[in-house]
């Protein structure tokens, strides 16, 4: 089966991420669904990097990528108000995270001499995708500094877990990305609930409820689709009862 290229997915993530952030910036909180694509793009790049027997675990690379993205988004929220000038803010966030991610990837390739194909591209994509997601979540939750560590860790887990869970023999991109979609829906669901509890300064509670409803709807569809993929991928062992190695 033909795999989706990194460029294609990242292009889509960039466009839909920026569109989502602009929508949220103009008070249409449903724009959060457009942030699901950056989740897919980041999970796909973690898969691309971790596939080649990385010197570090999937967890480390997820923590690292989200650290670059989230730190860029947090620091940039100081001078550029994410609410009054969303476009400028997003441009700055994406530029900073791309530069830091690319620089780290080039260093890992040239100085440390890791033999991983496209490590610099993948690092930049993880950093920029997580930065877009962080920027969107910051817009929804408002500048509540106490929630920063929470935003960071929830994005990290959703981004690193899909490949970590699907890895092994028979892993394929379609199933990993579908799991990433499941976790993206789950993450936005949690963000909606937290926004409801914290009742963000600029966004009315009805908007937060809309996020929760849309995310829950997406979650149900994604889980059903993912479970179908799992069943179709394991049909050989499902009806014989033996693991593939034994028959």
């Amino acid at each position: 089966m033909k795999e989706i290229q990194i460029h294609t997915l990242f292009g889509a993530a960039l466009l839909s991420g920026i569109a989502g952030i602009l929508l949220i910036g103009h008070g249409i909180s449903i724009g959060i669904v457009l942030l699901w694509i950056p989740f897919l793009s980041a999970a796909n790049s973690i898969r691309g990097m971790a596939k080649y027997g990385l010197g570090t675990g999937n967890a480390s690379i997820g923590y690292w990528g989200a650290a670059v993205g989230a730190t860029s988004a947090f620091v940039t929220s100081l001078p550029f108000s994410c609410r009054s000038t969303p476009l400028l803010y997003v441009a700055a966030v994406v530029a900073i995270s791309l530069v830091v991610g690319l620089a780290t990837g080039v260093l890992a390739d040239k100085v440390i001499r890791m033999k991983i194909p496209r490590i610099e591209l993948n690092s930049a994509v993880i950093a920029a995708s997580t930065a877009l997601i962080t920027a969107g979540f910051l817009l929804i939750l408002g500048s509540n500094y106490g929630l920063y560590p929470f935003i960071y860790i929830i994005i990290t887990l959703a981004v690193l877990h899909p490949y970590n869970a699907s890895t092994g023999a028979g892993e394929n991109q379609k199933r990993t990305l579908m799991l990433a979609l499941v976790e993206a829906c789950m993450t936005t669901l949690v963000i909606g609930i937290v926004a409801m509890l914290a009742s963000g300064p600029a966004m009315p509670v009805s908007d937060d409820v809309a996020i929760v409803v849309v995310s829950a709807f997406g979650l149900v569809i994604a889980v059903v689709a993912w479970y179908r993929l799992v069943k179709s991928d394991i049909y050989e062992i499902r009806w014989t009862g033996y693991s593939p190695a034994e028959h």
Binding site: I61, Y63, A67, V100, I112
Partner: peptide, 12 residues
């Protein structure tokens, strides 16, 4: 964030 960025590089 700076800690996580720098501590993953040596892992390579």
């Amino acid at each position: 964030g700076v800690f996580l960025i720098n501590s993953v590089l040596p892992a390579y």
